[in-house]
Design a protein around this nucleic acid. Structure first.
Length: 460
RNA sequence: UCCCCGGUAGCUCAAUCGGCAGAGCGGGUGGCUGUUAACCACUAGGUUCGCGGUUCAAGUCCGUGCCGGGGAGCCA
């Protein structure tokens, strides 16, 4: 007999014989029978099993505790008691794996996020993390749906890279050499001994490669892991995270902002429509304002203002910020939060930043002072997307590289795209975990990825 | 990396001025009950993060290290 997932079982209108397999959340003993709450991960809801203490069922039932993996065969019938529509009257009970109640870490009570991080191998079996993982999967699907419906191609950027200075952050070194042997070699000899014959690292961004693909396929996006060796210890940074990076040929900054806004709106709406039960859990126990916040995201256009206008808004606010507001500086976290949480009460896109505080590949505006960059800021989290129109003019690009002290040689292939058939193009990066923080209300990036990698943490 | 706060039972926390180490939940045993964060009674459970110091006496004070959280920077 085929097992029935709880999600399908509870959605059905008729009962009948079912085979149910899952993990016991709680066991309640009564006189002559027991109640089991079973969860199989297919949805947030458990199904209640009623098992009489018959000679066939009792021996197995005595082995069952919270956490055990079981199979139950029985009749799905309307429940006579309040609390659930259906329940299963057990005819057969098989225990696949027991869970010793003396040592099993997950209890029926609520656990702190900090504790659950120390048992990341077991936390998917809790309501909150099960819900997060289902939403995560659904959001990944929605990202692909969004782009593919718009004619974007999914391209796979390399994870191993030889580009030493992509500019987005500190890179992890990758080597197959034994550490002791490598340490004894001179730099040149060491590079030669490396697997790739040169220093290698893990990618900090697929953007440059995505640009190459966009200048051939038109509209593309990458969706893959990204690595930053920054010693960042904050609720919104991880050393390994997943990033969505669309890149569009024949597009300018306005197109870029339109795409980012449409993407975030689509994902917020999709979460509300397709993850209703799981989001209700987050709305009830994680962030009471979650559902209004998400609705508000697609209810109205995002605010858009230039960096200079943002500075004026901040100065006119009359607020005393810890960090002074200055025309030549990037916005501080407190500034970002003021703009989207207080001043506008919705997501905000800030664009046209001073060139000094942005990367070399961003397109120089006609004023010669600003670049066509944009940051999409959302309440609570701050920067969700960061992007720009790319500098497509070879002479301007090489001049900018010289200004910031970047050698041209390692970027010969990048510059080649500006020599041959260069075209205006634009794109951005969206941190997938930050999106999940927005959509679930979960406050720490370590809790929206199954096994978070942060400084000093490589367990699991 | 910098600033602030914290580390006590399996978990969440309390312990007054430096003076006998506590509670709830969870576990075990028994009872009761179509129960549903079940309930009632009893019970076991401690290197108070490590090291060093002050003191008659340290969970508590001092120094130091490790770990965790929050804020900042870096950014997605």
């Amino acid at each position: 007999m085929q097992r029935t997932r709880i999600k399908d079982m509870l959605a059905g209108e008729t009962g009948g014989t079912v085979l149910l397999k899952g993990w016991v959340r709680t066991k309640r003993e009564a006189k002559g029978f027991s109640f089991l709450e079973i969860n199989d991960g297919s949805c947030l809801a458990n199904v209640q099993v009623v098992a009489d203490h018959t000679p066939e069922l009792l021996p197995a039932m005595e082995q069952v505790n919270t956490g055990a993996a079981v199979a139950v065969e029985g009749e799905l019938v309307p429940s006579p008691a309040a609390g659930q529509k259906w329940e299963v009257r057990a005819a057969r009970l098989v225990v696949y794996g027991q869970a010793d109640p003396e040592t099993f870490a997950l209890q029926k009570k609520r656990h702190s996020d900090e504790f659950l991080r120390t048992i990341a191998h077991l936390r998917p079996r809790t309501n909150k993390y099960g819900a997060m993982l289902r939403v995560r999967s659904e959001m990944a699907r929605a990202v692909h749906e969004f782009f593919q419906a718009r004619g974007f191609f999914n391209v796979h950027a390399p994870i191993l890279t030889g580009s030493d200075c992509e500019g987005a952050g500190e890179m992890f070194r990758v080597s197959n050499l034994e550490a002791e042997k490598a340490a004894r070699l001179e730099p040149a000899a060491r590079a030669e001994a490396e697997f790739f014959g040169r220093p290698a690292g893990l990618t900090v961004s697929g953007q440059l490669e995505a640009e190459l693909m966009a200048l051939a396929l038109g509209d593309v996006y990458t969706f893959g892991p990204t690595f930053r060796a920054e010693n960042s210890n904050t609720p919104k940074h991880a050393a390994e995270f997943w990033m969505v990076e669309p890149e569009m040929a024949f597009a300018d900054l306005a197109d870029d902002m339109d795409l980012a806004e449409a993407l975030v709106k689509h994902l917020a709406r999709h979460a509300l429509e397709r993850c209703e039960a799981d989001l209700a859990l987050f709305g009830a126990f994680v962030d009471k304002t979650l559902l209004p916040t998400l609705t508000n995201i697609f209810a109205q256009p995002f605010a858009r203002l230039t960096h200079a206008e943002a500075i004026r808004e901040l100065k006119a606010s009359g607020k005393s910020f810890e960090f002074p507001v200055h025309e030549a500086s990037d916005l501080q976290t407190e500034h970002e939060r003021y703009l989207c949480e207080e001043r506008f009460g919705r997501p905000v896109i800030v664009y046209d930043y001073p060139k000094e505080i942005k990367a070399f590949y961003m397109r120089l505006n006609d004023d010669g002072k600003t670049v066509a960059a944009m940051d999409l800021l959302v309440p609570r989290i701050g920067e969700l997307c960061g992007g720009s129109q790319r500098e497509e003019r070879l002479d301007v690009l090489t001049r900018r590289m010289a200004e910031v002290g970047l050698p041209e040689e390692p970027y010969w292939w990048y510059l080649d795209t500006r020599r041959y058939g260069s075209a205006p193009h634009a794109g951005f990066g969206m941190g997938f975990e930050r999106l999940l923080m927005l959509v679930t209300g979960i406050a720490n990036i370590r809790d929206v990825i199954p096994f978070p990698r942060t400084p000093g943490h490589l367990e699991f």
